[in-house]
């Protein structure tokens, strides 16, 4: 049997960012639209999770200065007490609310998006594909590296099917689409 051709596109959505927001909401996350990074900065500063945070780890200085010296961190265990992590995602997927977070920017701090109590992802400029077919059409896996689709916060339904947000990883996930 021959290897079949793959679909290059699947279902289409009228308004992919709106669909993304809806998909993300359905998995317990939240999407905000912002015209620019300055607006994201204002919105992030007002997030209750950020207001209450004592440790903010930011990989986007334009959005938040952060108070965790990420550059100096060699051992990921040092990230254990991060309250909010702010990082970039490459693009978003409308059908499932996922954001592609490449490991390259994280480096030794690969644990960051998982160990943090709350996660803020910023997709700038806004880039939303319809389905995973388009997502994989653009992803390249040439060399060593890590990458992850994150769709909403960490969750479990292992106790009597009751959905509980915040199993091991982030208790909340907010995604900013910029532009």
């Amino acid at each position: 049997m021959a290897l079949p051709e793959l679909p290059t596109r699947g279902q289409r959505f009228e308004d992919p960012p709106a669909q993304f927001a809806q998909s993300l909401a359905s998995v317990g996350g939240r999407c905000e639209r912002s015209p620019n990074l300055a607006a994201v900065r204002t919105a992030v500063a007002a997030l209750p999770t950020v207001l209450e945070a004592s440790k903010v780890a930011s990989l986007i200085p334009e959005v938040h200065a952060g108070n965790v010296p990420l550059e100096q961190i060699e051992d990921p265990h040092a990230l254990a007490d991060v309250d909010v992590a702010i990082l970039r995602g490459d693009f978003a997927v409308a059908e499932n609310g996922a954001v592609w977070v490449p490991g390259a920017a994280l480096g030794r701090r690969q644990a960051l998006p998982f160990i943090t109590q709350h996660l803020v992802l910023v997709v700038e400029p806004m880039d939303v594909v319809h389905t995973l077919h388009e997502a994989y059409a653009r992803l390249r896996f040439g060399g060593p590296g890590f990458g992850v689709f994150i769709s909403g916060p960490s969750k479990t339904a292992d106790i009597e099917q009751a959905l509980v947000i915040g199993a091991h990883g982030a208790r909340s996930t907010v995604v900013f689409l910029v532009g």
């Binding site: 998909s23 359905s26 998995v27 997927v93 059908e95 499932n96 609310g97 996922a98 998982f114 995973l132 896996f141 060399g143 060593p144 590296g145 890590f146 990458g147 992850v148 689709f149 994150i150 769709s151 909403g152 916060p153 960490s154 969750k155 990883g169």
Partner: peptide, 11 residues
């Protein structure tokens, strides 16, 4: 669910 919360690609 439309996708799992975390879909990690290890290379």
């Amino acid at each position: 669910q439309p996708i799992t919360s975390f879909t990690s690609h290890f290379h």
